[in-house]
């Protein structure tokens, strides 16, 4: 691939929500380019529009204006089948609230995307077990979500997000509901998997721990990109944040 290709390109995206007669502008024109294999964090205070941007990139919601390109394809042009295929094969989602399907076991959760992708059931089980082992839950495959801790559920979600070898992992506050150490473990796991598998990780967060592992950090404020910092510039601003807090 030429250097110029971006796995995700966000161009002039705005998003308005209408609540009754009031119009809320959650995104006020965001431009962003994300390279393949990058580990990108989207940082910002609560209500700044992180989740909204996340939903746009993941094809879960449509922008009011502007375009989102996944591998230079405008996802607004995709029909329902192609969008489902994109969600199934190309993007892995991880949510703050884990979103493990409660009626299914850990293994069934991990294999479901592979079933959707048309894999045969022996292969899904084999691969599902391997993914669960990779996230350290090999022995918990037959457990239901309510028998797992929050951190373990999030691991299942990570294994599930990786099921179809996606190009992009979208994580909306993956550590938001976890304690400090568990959060760190999850971050380390995401980082390791992104490096090993060369997956692009885009994670919305207000967890400062995320900064250490990020290649780039996008700071969002009030629906706009405040600044974008590379890894090298980061240590300075981390210092500043520490001081400010």
């Amino acid at each position: 691939m030429p250097e110029t290709s971006h796995v995700v390109r966000v161009s002039g995206v705005t998003k308005n929500f209408r609540i009754g007669k009031i119009e809320v502008q959650a995104l006020k024109g965001v431009d962003l380019e994300i390279a393949r294999g990058e580990y990108l964090s989207i940082m910002g205070p609560s209500g700044s529009g992180k989740s909204t941007l996340f939903n746009m990139i993941g094809g879960l919601d449509k922008p009011s204006a502007g375009k989102v390109f996944i591998d230079e394809v405008d996802i607004a042009q995709l029909d329902a089948y192609e969008l489902a295929w994109l969600r199934c094969r190309k993007i892995g989602y991880i949510f703050q609230t884990f979103n493990i399907i409660q009626v299914m076991t850990a293994l069934e959760n991990v294999t479901l995307p592979m079933v959707f992708a048309g894999m045969n059931s022996d292969a899904t089980v084999k691969k599902g077990m391997r993914l669960l082992e990779q996230v350290g839950l090999g022995d918990r495959h037959s457990h239901k979500p309510f028998e797992l801790s929050g951190g373990q559920q999030q691991r299942v979600a990570i294994a599930r997000a990786l099921a179809n070898d996606p190009a992009i992992i979208l994580a909306d506050e993956p550590t938001g509901n976890l304690d400090l150490t568990t959060g760190e473990e999850i971050i380390a796991l995401l980082k390791r998997l992104s490096r090993e598998r060369r997956v692009t990780v885009i994670s919305a967060t207000h967890d400062i721990k995320m900064l250490n592992v990020s290649d780039r950090v996008v700071w969002i404020r009030d629906g706009r990109i405040d600044k974008i910092e590379n890894r090298e510039e980061l240590s300075i601003s981390i210092g500043k944040i520490r001081v400010r807090e």
Partner: peptide, 26 residues
């Protein structure tokens, strides 16, 4: 696992007639 498909372009260029798309997810 070692070389996942992620290195390929997401949407390959392949001219010709499009196959039915509704079999993509099952």
């Amino acid at each position: 696992d070692e070389f996942p498909m992620t290195q390929e372009p997401l949407f390959g260029e392949r001219p010709g007639k499009a196959p039915r798309a509704d079999r993509l997810v099952v």
